[in-house]
């Protein structure tokens, strides 16, 4: 575990300060220890996790480079031809070879829309997770380290938050945003509202996890040593306690990315997510759903399949990470 953190710290160091020899040595050292370590060993011995990682990587790379590697540009109206609409996957009798997974009602290539759609889904998922991580970790650290009435207040807020289903909170925030911003501008900020809505429902679990670990770490002697030295509470919290409570957070975050993507898809499916002009996987599934009973199954099944594979592989990686980092199960 420490190897991963120091790996990240080491990388951050080199990125900031140009080529610093000490940092470079540390990075090399970190890599060596990472590949020498138990986590890498457990990874190598676990074919399912390797498969999941490959699937997730394919998905992420496909999404990240969609504008460059997608076979068609589904949003360029000039390239669209309504005559291509509803053509089935390429391997079927009526399929056209240039559209591997067929096309939708407007003649857009399904594979290309999936790649662009995953891009939106991943961006929303990762950003939402990052935002709730920052909020949750900060509040959890303060709660656990300061204690007393501050702790009680933050944790009661968290309890209240937890008693509402995540979807409900997201719907609420989205609804409020629509009312405040107005329909015409809403499409431009829809993605940000979505990120905020998902993050608002997700920070609690980070806060709780971090608070729990902070309560343990706070009483350890290295924290007392820092207090004797005379470091300020804030400095102790972030430079001493934080690196030691990040382990469970990484696991949580990985699993949360999967959940966030599903939440985004659900919201988009319900019609309160991103607009159809910039579709996410959820929007694609909703649009395709209308044609499911008229026989054009591929329009909704392939985006659905992509969603399942992406989320499943992320969850497998998260589960494995949890076990690999847990010294008791090693």
């Amino acid at each position: 575990m420490s190897s991963i953190t120091s790996l990240i710290q080491g990388c951050a160091l080199t990125a900031r300060g140009g080529i610093d020899m000490v940092a470079l040595v540390n990075v090399v050292d970190s890599f060596r220890r990472f590949f020498d370590g138990d986590v890498w060993y457990s990874f190598r011995r676990n074919p399912l996790v390797i498969l999941a990682t490959l699937a997730a990587l394919v998905g992420i790379i496909g999404a990240a480079f969609a504008p460059w590697i997608a076979p068609h540009n589904p949003f360029d109206l000039k390239t669209l031809n309504l005559l291509d609409a509803f053509s089935p996957p390429a391997w079927t009798e009526l399929g056209k070879p240039q559209f591997w997974l067929g096309t939708d009602d407007q003649g857009r290539d399904v594979l290309s829309t999936i790649m662009h759609g995953s891009r939106v889904s991943l961006v929303v998922g990762i950003c939402a997770v990052f935002l709730s991580m920052v909020v949750g970790i900060t509040l959890g650290l303060i709660s656990g380290y300061v204690g007393g009435s501050v702790d009680a207040f933050i944790m009661r807020v968290a309890d209240i938050q937890l008693s509402f289903p995540a979807i409900l909170i997201a719907l609420l925030i989205d609804g409020v945003a629509r009312a405040v911003i107005g329909k015409e501008h809403h499409d431009q900020v829809a993605v940000y509202v979505l990120i905020f809505a998902i993050a608002a429902s997700g920070w609690v679990q980070y806060a709780r996890t971090v608070r729990g670990s902070t309560l343990v770490e706070r009483n350890k002697e290295y924290v007392q040593a820092a207090q004797v030295i005379g470091r300020r509470s804030l400095a102790i919290m972030f430079s001493h306690v934080l690196p030691n409570v990040m382990g469970p957070v990484f696991v949580l975050a990985t699993l949360h990315v999967g959940t966030a993507i599903i939440t985004e898809a659900t919201l988009s499916f319900l019609g309160v997510g991103v607009p159809p002009t910039q579709p996410s996987l959820g929007t694609l599934i909703r649009v395709g759903n209308d044609f499911l009973f008229s026989g054009e199954w591929w329009i909704t099944v392939f985006p659905g399949l992509a969603l399942v594979i992406l989320v499943l592989s992320i969850n497998i990686i998260g589960d494995w990470l949890r076990d690999a980092l847990n010294p008791k199960l090693r």
């Binding site: 420490s2 953190t5 120091s6 350890k220 002697e221 290295y222 007392q224 040593a225 690196p243 030691n244």
Partner: peptide, 13 residues
């Protein structure tokens, strides 16, 4: 101050 537990008194990270 020097503490009792040599495993807990140094920040492992």
């Amino acid at each position: 101050m020097i503490f009792q537990d040599p495993y807990a008194s140094l920040n492992p990270r």
